[in-house]
C-alpha cells in the first residue's frame, strides 16, 4: 500500500482510504519517538527543505524533527534569509532549490495556492505546511490522529470548530477531513468571520456557540489573531472572549467525555480559559506529539518507495 502521489497539498484532494493509510502509518510511527534512540534509517540520503515564508516555530520544528527521525537531512529556509526579500519570484526560487536536488520541499506561505504552484515547478515532492487561508493538511491529520486515539473512531462524531473560520486554513482542512471520515462538523464564529458559502463544504454553520457545543464530542478552538480587531472583524478582545471564548460554563453543553483541541499557540484567557486549556479534556500537548508522527508518516509515504514512472 502506498500513497500514489508526488505531493501532499491538501485534505480536499485526498480520499478516505488515503486518509486512513496516513493515519494508520502515523500511529505506527509514534513508537519511534518513544525509543531511547529516536531515529530510524528509512530515509537515509534524502534531503528535505523546509521553505517557510511565514514565521512558524511549532510546525517547522515538527517537520524538521520528523525528517531527522527518519534520517533525512533537513534544511530550513526562512523568509528573512531567503531571496524573496530580494525580489526573486517563486518560480526562480523553486528552480534554484530544485537544482540542489532535494527530495521534498515543505512550504508555508501566506498566499493560498503557493504550494500548488511550487509543485508544478519542481519534480520533487511538495508538502503544504499551510497556505494562506486555504489548507493546512498536516495539522488536520494530526488533529484526526489525536481524536482517533481518544475516541477509537472518526465516524459518527460531533465536531465543533469555533473561532475565526474565514481566515483559518486549519478549519478548512479539518472540515474536509472529519466529514470525509463520516463525522458531523459544525463551525461557529462571529458572522464577520464566517466566509460566504462555507456550508457548501459540508458542515453546519452557526453564530451561536452554545448551539455548536451542544452534544459535541470534540471541540476545536481556533486561535484569534489580535490584528483582526483593527479590521473590525470583532470590536474588542474582551467581547470576543465573552461571547466565543471557551470556559467551563460553556463546556458543560458538550458531552461529558468531550475532548478539546487547539492548533496553538494559544491566547490564554481569550479563545480558551486557562483552566480549560490545562484541564483534563485538553489534548493540546498530545496534538504536538502526534504532529511529529503524522509528518514522519507523510515523509515515509511520499519518499519511502521507488518513484512512479
Amino acid at each position: 500500500m502506498r500513497l500514489k502521489r508526488k505531493d501532499l497539498l491538501g485534505i480536499e484532494d485526498l480520499t478516505r482510504d488515503e486518509l486512513e493509510l496516513i493515519l494508520s502509518t502515523a500511529a505506527s510511527f509514534k513508537e519511534v519517538s518513544e525509543r531511547e534512540i529516536k531515529k530510524v534509517p528509512t530515509l537515509r540520503g534524502k534531503t528535505v527543505i523546509n521553505l517557510f515564508y511565514e514565521p512558524s516555530t511549532r510546525t517547522r520544528t515538527s517537520f524538521e524533527i520528523a525528517a531527522k527521525r527518519m534520517s533525512a537531512d533537513a534544511v530550513n529556509i526562512s523568509v528573512s534569509t531567503s531571496s524573496a526579500v530580494k525580489g526573486e519570484t517563486l518560480r526562480d526560487t523553486a528552480r534554484n532549490l530544485e537544482a540542489m536536488r532535494p527530495d521534498c520541499i515543505v512550504v508555508r506561505h501566506s498566499s493560498s495556492g503557493t504550494p500548488h504552484m511550487l509543485a508544478g515547478y519542481v519534480g520533487c515532492s511538495v508538502v503544504n505546511a499551510g497556505d494562506g487561508a486555504h489548507e493546512h493538511p498536516s495539522q488536520a491529520l494530526l488533529d484526526m490522529l489525536t481524536v482517533k486515539e481518544k475516541k477509537g473512531t472518526l465516524s459518527g462524531l460531533k465536531i465543533a470548530i469555533v473561532g475565526d473560520i474565514a481566515h483559518s486554513r486549519v478549519a478548512r482542512s479539518n472540515i474536509y477531513g472529519f466529514t470525509k471520515m463520516g463525522s458531523e462538523v459544525t463551525v461557529a464564529g462571529p458572522p464577520t468571520m464566517l466566509p460566504a458559502g462555507i456550508e457548501k463544504l459540508g458542515c453546519r454553520v452557526t453564530s451561536n456557540v452554545e448551539d455548536a457545543l451542544r452534544g459535541a464530542d470534540v471541540i476545536m478552538m481556533l486561535r484569534i489573531q489580535m490584528e483582526r480587531q483593527s479590521e473590525s472583524f470583532f470590536p474588542t478582545v474582551r467581547e470576543y472572549s465573552r461571547v466565543y471564548g471557551l470556559d467551563e460554563a460553556k463546556l458543560k453543553r458538550a458531552k461529558e467525555d468531550v475532548i478539546i483541541l487547539h492548533p496553538g499557540p494559544i491566547n490564554r484567557g481569550v479563545e480558551i480559559s486557562s483552566e480549560v486549556a490545562d484541564g483534563p479534556y485538553s489534548l493540546i500537548l498530545d496534538q504536538v506529539t502526534n504532529g511529529v508522527a503524522v509528518r514522519m508518516a507523510i515523509f515515509y509515504l511520499l519518499l519511502g518507495a521507488a518513484k512512479e514512472e
Partner: peptide
C-alpha cells in the same frame, strides 16, 4: 462566494 472560500482567497 463558495469558490473563494474553498480556495482560501
Amino acid at each position: 462566494g463558495v469558490v473563494a472560500t474553498r480556495l482560501g482567497l
